[in-house]
Design a protein around this nucleic acid. Sequence first.
DNA 1: GTTAGCACTCAAATCATTAGAGTGCTAATA
DNA 2: TATTAGCACTCTAATGATTTGAGTGCTAAC
Lengths: 370, 370
Amino acid sequence: MSEEDELTVRQKKILDVIIKNYLETGEPVGSRTISKSSDLNLSSATIRNEMSDLEDMGYILQPHTSAGRIPSDKGYRFYVGELMNSQKDTSPPDSTSQMLVQRTDRLEKMLKQVVDVLAANTNYTSMISAPAITGVRVKFVQLSAVNEHQLLSVVVMDGNAVRNRLINIDEPLNNEDLLKLNMLLNTNLSGLTVNDINLALIKKLKSQAGEYAPIIENVLENVAGTIEQDEGRTIYTSGTTNIFKYPELSDANRASHLISTFENKEELENLVNEIETDDEGNPNGISVFIGDDIPNMPDVSVVTAKYDLGEGFKGTIGILGPKRMDYENVMKNLKSLKKQLSDIVDSSRIGAKKEPKRIEAKKDIKEKKE
Amino acid sequence: MSEEDELTVRQKKILDVIIKNYLETGEPVGSRTISKSSDLNLSSATIRNEMSDLEDMGYILQPHTSAGRIPSDKGYRFYVGELMNSQKDTSPPDSTSQMLVQRTDRLEKMLKQVVDVLAANTNYTSMISAPAITGVRVKFVQLSAVNEHQLLSVVVMDGNAVRNRLINIDEPLNNEDLLKLNMLLNTNLSGLTVNDINLALIKKLKSQAGEYAPIIENVLENVAGTIEQDEGRTIYTSGTTNIFKYPELSDANRASHLISTFENKEELENLVNEIETDDEGNPNGISVFIGDDIPNMPDVSVVTAKYDLGEGFKGTIGILGPKRMDYENVMKNLKSLKKQLSDIVDSSRIGAKKEPKRIEAKKDIKEKKE
DNA sequence: GTTAGCACTCAAATCATTAGAGTGCTAATA
DNA sequence: TATTAGCACTCTAATGATTTGAGTGCTAAC
């Protein structure tokens, strides 16, 4: 990929101008334009020579003989990696359009909000994968009798993920037995991860439960279900139709392909997974995938960030747009959101121990849309 | 709308041919085509005269002077109402492509499945609104201590809708008090609908709860939440990108408009609501909305059916496509699904009282996609 | 009432022409 | 030796003229 980085300062400058210009206009940029709009004070002829070299090196290309140049995927990558203004980082991300994420008591709503904010701020399509839970532990189990023929099993896991399940029973259960069962379950399951619950443990539980063994089975399925439900990882998306704002993406074929990918969560999940693999140890925890980096989607770029909510809750947040997207703004937004996300959750974690704030935060939700 | 239905038999026949032909091809149909393809044995000139009359009466129209005719909205309506082959109803709806809805224990998954089936069978876009709960009653309330600082409130409503809420408390609650609170809540709330829970009752509960009044408040919010969550009515959609299969809908503007309507559930909800109003007492419980019937969407048709799962669970299921959609197939599919839906729920209701089938049904889910 | 015949209309396809943006190359210049 | 002016050349996109053909409406004959 890097065959001797032999770009002269001037070449870098020219490449920078070409890309910046193309990001704005979406039109191929010609030598004359560069000669005039840059402070290089070079004639178009000189620029032409340099451009010819840049093209030979693969940083730019010509849509056709008599057109200007546009950045190649390699050019974009160079731009993101070296040319882009990354020291401006300190400035607040586009404060006018920036919308803060409001606190809410439901993770789901928060995620939905995050993608909405992101799509609105960037004018691209955004997505966020709900946190994958890894290694969460059982916190609390409770069986209660709803009526003579139904038990309700409630399982609370770390991070307060709650799952219910109704269990139908043939014979009513008396209160003592119910209490015993609850005791049995809590003493044996609390603090365990799903992986800890092995056959031996199940056997032990069942034998201790005696005639209630079938109920144990159901409860355990409920515990498993807590994980399972998040395994078909939910992905929230927003701003799908933003792709129509970019002519290079909005012809029927491309648009249909993109949108159906976003509609079909499984496909989207694959995309995210395939992309995630080689995303390790990069500077700000932000990864940029351009064009042929992305399977089946040579005309778009995807920028992703991982977020970590602690307690094993992790997920990916990303935005998809045309290759000529405003990488700078997008990365700023992602970085900011990433920070906000962990901040919010931190404070809510701490707050939760002091006052019942989970509830009062609810009203905030209404005000989200601008 | 009906200004003396003065269509002769021959005119009806011609109109029928025009529409059938147009449904298939999507091209304006001319007099010569009709003359040849129908069994009327009339010359094109005669057909032309009749067509001229049909146009005067508003059943068909010409895209431009030298083109054939296409059905007007009025024409479509007449077709759906009188011309369409509705006696074929008895035949099974397109048995090859028909996919049965599998039983599942989660309403949500079932609905998702239904829209998927519908979209796959029709090649149009489908949507289903999750059941709106009206007048459901509280079945069971349970508070349990998760740890010293958190209570878990679980509310089960009719139809086994369950909601949880974590309540943070300052002081640990001893077991006796917890039991008393549970007793208090269950005796007072069981069997009530949300509307029944008025200020007087709340006051009474709070005073009886003494120092635990704040907890009562939280539990009541939880009860209210059961309803509330379904008020922002979830709508599931599928096959959005099918619109790209119909050139008349797939230009950037229209497509963008349609797709964003489907992405933004609020808008979609409005659409469904506006449409629902005048949908009363029609033959099979199926309503057809064509072109200007639908606010802001003159180029599409929507066919809807209401479903009723009993116990106050009702919703709407619908499909959206080009005006030249295959109404016959669509209506057949809707009718069949409507039936399957209520059948499934009926059988699961009955089954639920006898054996724990909610659980064993789960494995079915995996097999759904073809 | 039906039909043949014909003039007329109009969209869409095809083709030729033009305009202009941009390049590459060469020769002159500093 | 690096830069630049100048010019021929290329190719797209826009414009406009022409043709084609499907389809109609009307009239007159059957």
